[in-house]
Write a protein that binds this DNA or RNA. Structure first.
Lengths: 193, 193
DNA sequence: CCTACCGATCGGTAGG
DNA sequence: CCTACCGATCGGTAGG
């Protein structure tokens, strides 16, 4: 016996995340979203106030997931090398387990109003700062080279991590642990002999 | 004496590139574009056939610029290390000199019709293949480790390169040669001791 | 390149 | 959550 139960606000937000991630905010209409969740367009407004609010909510979920990973790593402590490994694994997990929120956080911030856009930029910088700190820690404890530039190095590591969702598909040659290991290996040693 | 001369098709395409790169295809209206180029919306159609055609044209310009760089590197030859350096420098040049076409090529392909979208994916793979070949060359000639995976390594290098336009701004601490050198250094040695 | 305009779709509201 | 609808804007066309 199938019971059609009424949609919750979270159903609507999750569906919005799916569409924003796959077609972009401006490429998604409220009627697209309503169809995705099984309603008519006007019925969405008994769950939410506006399309813009939905974007804010999805983006902030993405920001919170990445930050939670960084916070866990910082609380666990360890050498620079250990913490970098944990940051890489945590990022891969967030991207693979919450791809819609991650993509929307990474690529749709420009569709936000200026106030929320600035908050996203601040959230990204805060997350990036965790990588910078780990690089400094590792330079001191002998994990890493001592002359590396933490700012640009953090950006390059995050560039690799953020791009994962653009090419990696589960079920392929690498599982997610092997993926994280490959990334960590490249970030540690590069291609050099 | 200022002469207002009539717009050419290329002015319209270039303006479209600017807007697609900064607001996205779906975030750009034909009236936005007309204003950018100093016309009324309907007047655009004496230069172009449709909004979709404009996207195709900008994206294909981006594809051609990247491919031209890869072709130049391949024709110049050299060791794997030399060719990788040339690919990195070439990519940085394309991104910094043609940021609108590069961004549109990288981020707006999903807004294309399926036929053109597939062509972009093929163009990206062809460009990526140049990186894979250079990695294989370098593994044979002693430039690089012999046990690296060319496919995933090429993706990671390109992830760093493609992200450049998201954070690098000319006139800052690094000029473009230093930027390319930092990227090459990271790709060669990573953070390890 | 503009005037005048088209049908379709947009985000959203009133009222039940 | 639906019916009925709003004004605004969308990409695009006819005709000059």
């Amino acid at each position: 016996m199938t019971v059609t139960r009424s949609r919750t606000r979270q159903d609507v937000v999750a569906a919005a995340g799916r569409l924003f991630a796959s077609r972009g905010y401006h490429g998604t209409s409220m009627r697209d979203l309503a169809r995705e969740v099984g309603l008519l367009g006007s019925s969405l407004y008994s769950h939410i106030d506006s399309k813009a609010d939905l974007l804010v909510e999805v983006v902030e979920q993405g920001a919170a997931l990445f930050q939670a990973s960084a916070d866990r790593v910082e609380n666990a402590g360890g050498t620079g090398a250990e913490q970098l490994a944990a940051l890489v694994e945590g990022h891969v997990d967030v991207v693979l387990d919450h791809i819609d929120e991650a993509r929307t956080f990474l690529y749709e911030a420009d569709a936000l109003d200026e106030t929320h856009r600035q908050r996203v930029l601040a959230a990204r910088d805060r997350y990036e700062a965790a990588f910078r700190r780990v690089l400094v820690t590792g330079a001191k404890d002998g994990s890493f080279q001592t002359d590396l530039d933490p700012a640009i190095t953090a950006i390059m590591i995050l560039s690799i991590l953020n791009a994962v969702e653009r090419w990696y598909r589960p079920g392929g040659r690498l599982d997610r642990r092997q993926l994280a290991a490959e990334i960590l290996r490249f970030c540690s040693n590069g291609v050099g002999t």
